[in-house]
Design a protein around this nucleic acid. Structure first.
Lengths: 192, 192
DNA sequence: GACACCTTACTGACCAGTAAGTAGAGTCGC
DNA sequence: GCGACTCTACTTACTGGTCAGTAAGGTGTC
């Protein structure tokens, strides 16, 4: 009966978000239902609706959390070198892969046409964040002389971002594809 | 009453496949129903089930058609130079983009976890085809001296394939992303 | 007694899939 | 050249399941 043991900290809302996140990244937003969450959580369907009245509310909350998390992620490694930042991004992808998941921007853009309007706008903001960050890394990498590539930093950032998103999807068929793409990007950037 | 005028050629089965293809590439396989097709076609729902008893039959037929079409596509340009072949692949992506669609391998790998088994296997074969072809182009490009890149042809092929798949998804938010990625890939390969 | 956080119980929409019937066109025996 | 048969390509009518979403009630806590 210690106050630490009754896990008040982990409230239902957060559990819902965590479960929804895992479901979205493996099955897609349209392909999971409130039933999937409530069954796993041991509550009734309507409990989910209490926290997130519409499914799009849940979706928007998910993407907002991604944005916040991603901004914390980039801020936390603002002091790292560009090549270290690139490796951090690769590790992020490894984590998704380890859980049979794909990139959130990947699933969201694939399903974009069927997403509710509010989710679509949030997705756009999230993709812009990730895209801008990839461009930042390779721009600063070239500025400090550790990365070398032709063309613009925006173009190279887009290639890195798109290739990693594609690689996570490719990795669903061939486990080695992710490693292969990571290695090739390092070589294309001339770092390591 | 000429025998040519009563368009017997365009049979329902092909119309179903064409409509299903467009729906899958824009909405995804799980997000379209037989209703979508039958309403557009002016027939009843069960008419679709006559041609494709299960939805997975329709899905498998779709991917099989992709495989056949893609093999014809690659055979037709076997004589072209590697850089011309690359441009042909880019034009393929442009066509998808022009119809607000994404790459079939993109949507199928995103939805993979929710696809029926037979579709999953077909998808794997299709992805292997496209992936092998991308590697072939850059391998032959390097062999004849018009493309230059570090690392293996397989790695570079994977990057090109994954980047183009990702670029089509990115292009749903920013129209210029596709052009940007295409240009950057050309520059990375040192051709043009 | 007010509020947060659930519950039970329900609605209406949509979905894949099935069963049975039918219209028309082609084929065969005679 | 005509009825009987058969096959293709549908139709109508239905089932059972899943879904998001709602309304109203309960329960514990402050």
């Amino acid at each position: 009966m210690k106050p630490e043991t009754d896990a008040r900290i982990t409230d239902t809302r957060k559990k819902i978000l965590d479960l929804a996140e895992a479901l979205m990244l493996s099955r897609g937003f349209n392909a999971f239902s409130y039933q999937h969450i409530s069954a796993e959580l041991g509550v009734r369907n309507a409990a989910i609706h209490y926290h997130f009245p519409k499914k799009s509310d849940l979706g928007v909350a998910l993407i907002e959390r991604y944005c916040r998390r991603f901004e914390r992620f980039t801020q936390a490694q603002a002091e790292l070198s560009p090549s270290e930042q690139l490796e951090q991004y690769f590790e992020l992808a490894d984590r998704y892969f380890g859980q049979q998941q794909i990139c959130p921007s990947g699933i969201l853009s694939a399903e974009l046409q069927t997403l509710p309007d509010d989710m679509r706008q949030q997705t756009q903001a999230f993709v812009a964040l990730m895209r801008g960050w990839a461009a930042d890394i390779v721009r600063r990498g070239r500025d400090v002389g550790v990365m070398h590539y032709p063309g613009s930093a925006e173009g190279m950032g887009d290639v890195v971002f798109a290739a990693m998103q594609g690689a996570l999807q490719l990795a669903r068929f061939d486990q080695q594809a992710l490693q292969s793409v990571k290695l090739q990007i390092r070589q294309l950037l001339g770092c390591q």
